[in-house]
């Protein structure tokens, strides 16, 4: 699939292999993913970009078996995920949910610790890790005893990220992690996450509809439409317009570039350039 060079340092054998996966709903009438293959290298941060109904979320969920494909196979480290019990598999993979997905009846500390408890950690280890995670996502320690409804949207998603990576998973899946947040929070949480990703050497797949976010955070962008992959390359190559001939991809990549030009124009004497 990916012929172009990847800017990621680790260029070893693929870590996650999505192999000719198809998934449809309503007895085949609604196709979500159609014969998609994708290799993800260890340590990379891959963004799945596309409009609603493009199949990006379904594809993401095949990795931790929230969705089982009709056809094809997903392998992690060469082992088919279909051989693992779904709950066990999911405990080893971090997941950041669309709309945050914290448990409203659990305190922040219990939310962060949920996977640790499922994995049978000792109480003292859990306490130490929760404290460490709060520091890591820049939340004060006394937030541990708060309930999610007492937090702002950005704080909640920081807790969501802390929960996903508390057990130090090697793989993290993120479904529109920043979708509901204001631009300032998005930017700061986006760059904090990228830092954590690099620090722990995690492999991340992130679903987003925001090409700008994808371009700024990811090592690699996979553009999807109608269950198929339209383009798959580094942000740089795609921005240069040489990743794909597909008009949809070209139009999509136009957006951040033209926005950047207009923003730049705003900062000069000439005033805004009309689109």
């Amino acid at each position: 699939m990916t012929a172009s060079p990847i800017s990621n340092p680790s260029n070893s054998a693929p870590y996650i292999e999505i192999d000719a996966v198809s998934k449809s709903y309503d007895g085949g009438r609604s196709v979500a993913v159609s014969n998609v293959s994708l290799d993800v290298q260890q340590g990379s941060l891959v963004a799945l970009v596309g409009g609603s109904g493009s199949g990006k979320t379904t594809l993401l969920k095949t990795i931790n078996r929230l969705v089982d494909p009709d056809v094809g196979e997903v392998r992690i480290d060469g082992v088919p995920v279909s051989e693992a019990e779904p709950p066990m598999l999911r405990r080893s993979i971090g997941y950041v949910f669309q709309g945050i997905g914290l448990f409203p009846h659990m305190r922040v500390a219990d939310n962060i610790a949920v996977t640790l408890k499922l994995r049978g950690w000792q109480a003292s280890e859990i306490e130490a890790r929760v404290a460490e995670m709060l520091d890591m996502v820049d939340l004060p320690q006394d937030y541990a005893s708060r309930f999610p409804h007492m937090l702002s949207g950005g704080q909640r998603q920081r807790v969501g990220v802390a929960r996903a990576i508390a057990a130090r998973p090697r793989i993290v899946l993120m479904d529109e992690p920043l979708g509901a947040l204001d631009p300032v929070t998005r930017d700061s949480l986006g760059s904090s996450y990228r830092e954590l990703h690099d620090r722990f050497g995690m492999t991340t797949l992130m679903v987003t509809h925001d090409i700008q976010e994808a371009a700024l955070m990811a090592d690699r962008i996979v553009v999807m439409k109608n269950g198929r992959v339209l383009a798959d390359d580094t942000p740089h190559t795609l921005m240069m317009g040489s990743g794909s001939d597909d008009p949809d991809v070209t139009a999509l990549m136009e957006v951040p570039r033209r926005q950047a030009e207009r923003i730049a124009a705003l900062a000069t004497q000439n005033g805004p350039a009309r689109a």
Binding site: N64, L66, P86, P87, M88, L89, R90, R91, S92, Y95, F97, Q98, G99, G101, L102, F103, P104, V114, T115, L118, R163
Partner: peptide, 11 residues
């Protein structure tokens, strides 16, 4: 969404 979150964390 909360049920899916529970599934997602491996319950």
């Amino acid at each position: 969404a909360i049920v899916e979150a529970a599934e997602g964390v491996g319950m």
